[in-house]
Write a protein that binds this DNA or RNA. Structure first.
Lengths: 229, 229
DNA sequence: GACTCCTCCCTAGCACTGTTAGGGGCAACC
DNA sequence: GGTTGCCCCTAACAGTGCTAGGGAGGAGTC
């Protein structure tokens, strides 16, 4: 389609420098995921978006799975980390981190689908882990509890965000939430009395408050544990 | 290949009754997932395990995705629900439910990978939802909080179990956990000082205690909220 | 300048996927 | 006996991740 002007672009822009590298590929992949959704993603499509053929991708990236690892780490990298310890107490800092991470994940719903089952231990993921664990250790937690606090935070934020996205947070299907609500309300109330009764309020559109509340519960539990040590 | 003896089997076993139905397909699919893992699963393989050809599956099941919905619901259905309210206080009942659900999910790690991003609202999922919400309502929570309590429980248990499986809980890769631990310990400790310090204890093999502790924190937070209403 | 090496993209193709179109045997019902 | 509907089949389509192997062209060396 854009074959011929591609030749021009190539000879002009990138006579010496390679026109592609991993970061450029990851950037395009994230853009494709955001725009077209998870199901529309494939190596061939990504290659087309980069104006190359799909096998060329494999020179830069070992496999689709490795690319997904890079994608996840890139998204995690968008979560801001305060440099040094701020003035806030440790628990507020952890909660702020959780809120930021959730916000970042919800901004890339298709990429967030890659997270479950993946270990978030790319460079950015490691930096985040080190940050959280450091925060907890300086707050007086021992090594075991600090590590567990980090795991708990990640489990909670990831699990919440993924399910939240499943419930229709994605772009374009914002009314899926209403659709599910209607489905639940239409169920036979003799079989599921309590569920039907609360169905209207089960899937509130604004989950931020609920998220923060749950996160606070988890962190409070953690704080309690430290005290009892 | 086995075409001719298939004819015999057919005329003998299944003269009148249909030899296949959805529950039989789901049973075989779960067996295949458990035995061979998620990556080895395909409609053709499932068909082969049932001694039929893959297009025949589509007479019983609309799509692979619908089959996955059925699978998830079947696994959820293995979580025991006490009939009627037991003698235990509500929070202990909820925690017991969370522990049971996690156990069931860990027993089918490959099927659990299907859960994230899927709404657990098949028959069994609905029954579970109704049960939990009923428990909370009778404990004095209003409709909004009861619904949220259910969501929080599901988010937490699902998120925890999925990540736990990612960390190597699957069958056959039990030493992946040790491998990840070694990787973390080998990181440059000047760049990730706190992470490396706790790396050895980050991924404990027995996560049940940690799970229960986190779950208790969430439930305690919920109880607190009720009091403040 | 000719040489080789390395980078980075290409074409061709493999083995596989989910899924549909359409056909046919066979039991059950009128 | 004819018709209906169930339940499986073969054939095939469009697409997937990925590999083998090739070739253009810049970089470095003699």
């Amino acid at each position: 389609m854009a074959g011929h002007d591609h030749v021009f672009a190539r000879s002009q822009e990138t006579a010496a420098a390679p026109r592609l590298d991993r970061t450029e590929i990851v950037r395009a992949a994230l853009e494709l995921l955001d725009a077209e959704g998870f199901d529309a993603f494939s190596m061939r499509r990504l290659a087309a978006a980069l104006d190359i053929k799909s096998p060329s991708l494999y020179w830069h990236v070992r496999s689709k799975d490795e690319l997904f690892d890079l994608l996840v780490d890139t998204v995690i990298g968008k979560c801001p980390l305060p440099d040094g310890d701020g003035a806030d107490p440790w628990d507020e800092q952890v909660i702020q981190l959780g809120l930021d991470l959730r916000r970042v994940l919800l901004a890339h719903p298709a990429a967030t689908r890659l997270l479950p089952g993946r270990l978030p231990f790319g460079p950015h993921g490691l930096r985040l882990a080190d940050h959280v664990i450091g925060l907890l250790r300086r707050a007086g937690f021992d090594d075991r509890m600090a590590g567990y606090g980090y795991l708990l935070l990640m489990f909670f934020v990831t699990g919440f965000a993924v399910q939240e996205i499943a419930f229709g947070k994605g772009p374009g299907n914002g009314d899926r939430l209403a659709e599910v609500s209607r489905y639940l309300e239409g169920l036979p109330s003799d079989r599921y009395p309590d569920l039907v009764a609360v169905a209207g309020e089960l899937l509130a559109p604004r989950l931020t408050d609920r998220f923060e509340f749950g996160l606070r519960s988890v962190i409070d539990g953690l704080a309690e544990k430290r005290r009892s040590d």
